[in-house]
Amino acid sequence: MNIPLKPQASQTARTLAGKVALVTGSTSGIGLGIIRALAAEGADVVLNGLGGAAEIGKVREQIAAEFSVKASFSPADMTRPNSIAEMIAATVAQSGRLDILVNNAGIQHVAPLEAFPVEKWDQILAINLSSAFHTTRLALPAMRRNGFGRIINVSSTHGLIASPFKAAYVAAKHGIVGLTKVTALETAEEAITCNAICPGYVYTPLVEAQIDGQAKAHGISRDQVIRDVLLAQQPNKRFTTVEELGALTVFLSTEAAGSITGIALPVDGGWTAH
């Protein structure tokens, strides 16, 4: 008996086709990995971040060509509310919608409390925390008009626990988790969710630079730096990958994750299981 097979096209349909996604801090590292994952699932994307115009243009063109989506760029300064407002307004004006907002922009500075530069504290809080408040409050009206929204805040393991010498970063990332919960509660009866991803150490070009620096400073091998310094608290003893974070972001952006909201999800190889 021959049983007719269903067409296979639906199995290859991209889950985010027709959606528009904005990712802050997405010209390199984690943000770029996330924006590529969203584009691979059919979302038109808006990049934001630092870098030379030619380099960013090349990245944008590559994403558009590789994934057959629209890819644009906003140079918005995440320390300036007016610049953030212009970015959100331009995105909505250009596309008529903003479905997925990923707040990823962030910087770091390490120093003991009594020596922590005040200007660095202010800058880290502005970029790592306040920018997410501004993007969220400005994106919500467009999401409500279109009856769909996904807000994903890239926090950190340091949004759940602390380490010495990272006062501003830890404070900001804890704040992101709190903002996530408030946003989730305020949108709970709508088709809008808000969640935080809390990565441990992620392998990026910036981390690669830290490996070489630590190896020279301590006179030890790269493998020792990775295992005994950077990943000392990470039980699986390997870096989280940007591809893993991208895949999780895609899932949280889909209809299938419609009942997942207000969570802070560790992606840390067991770090916070201690």
Results as ranks from 00 to 15, higher is better:
residue 239 F to R: 02
residue 48 N to Q: 12
residue 135 T to S: 08
residue 39 A to E: 00
residue 31 G to E: 11
residue 165 F to D: 15
residue 129 L to T: 01
residue 228 D to L: 02
residue 76 A to Y: 01
residue 182 V to S: 14
residue 252 L to H: 04
residue 87 M to D: 00
residue 205 P to K: 12
residue 189 E to Q: 15
residue 183 T to F: 02
residue 120 K to R: 15
residue 137 R to Q: 15
residue 186 E to F: 00
residue 33 G to N: 08
residue 176 I to F: 03
residue 31 G to P: 05
residue 191 A to G: 11
residue 56 I to R: 00
residue 193 T to E: 08
residue 152 I to L: 12
residue 34 I to R: 01
residue 256 A to Q: 15
residue 167 A to E: 09
residue 209 A to Y: 04
residue 13 A to H: 01
residue 111 A to F: 00
residue 59 V to H: 05
residue 255 E to M: 13
residue 215 A to G: 08
residue 258 G to K: 11
residue 73 F to S: 08
residue 214 Q to V: 13
residue 145 R to E: 15
residue 191 A to C: 12
residue 251 F to T: 08
residue 178 G to V: 08
residue 15 T to G: 00
residue 266 P to I: 12
residue 36 R to D: 11
residue 206 L to W: 01
residue 78 M to L: 15
residue 56 I to Q: 04
residue 271 W to R: 04
residue 52 G to N: 10
residue 129 L to S: 02
residue 85 A to C: 05
residue 162 A to D: 02
residue 94 Q to T: 15
residue 134 H to G: 07
residue 95 S to T: 14
residue 209 A to N: 13
residue 131 S to F: 04
residue 116 F to I: 08
residue 274 H to D: 12
residue 154 V to Y: 03
residue 243 E to Y: 04
residue 212 D to V: 01
residue 109 H to P: 04
residue 200 G to S: 03
residue 34 I to C: 03
residue 21 A to Y: 01
residue 146 N to S: 05
residue 230 L to A: 06
residue 186 E to I: 03
residue 223 D to W: 02
residue 19 K to Q: 14
residue 105 A to I: 06
residue 175 G to L: 12
residue 212 D to K: 12
residue 168 A to N: 01
residue 83 S to G: 02
residue 80 R to K: 15
residue 151 I to N: 02
residue 45 V to W: 05
residue 221 S to H: 10
residue 48 N to P: 02
residue 65 A to Y: 00
residue 196 A to G: 09
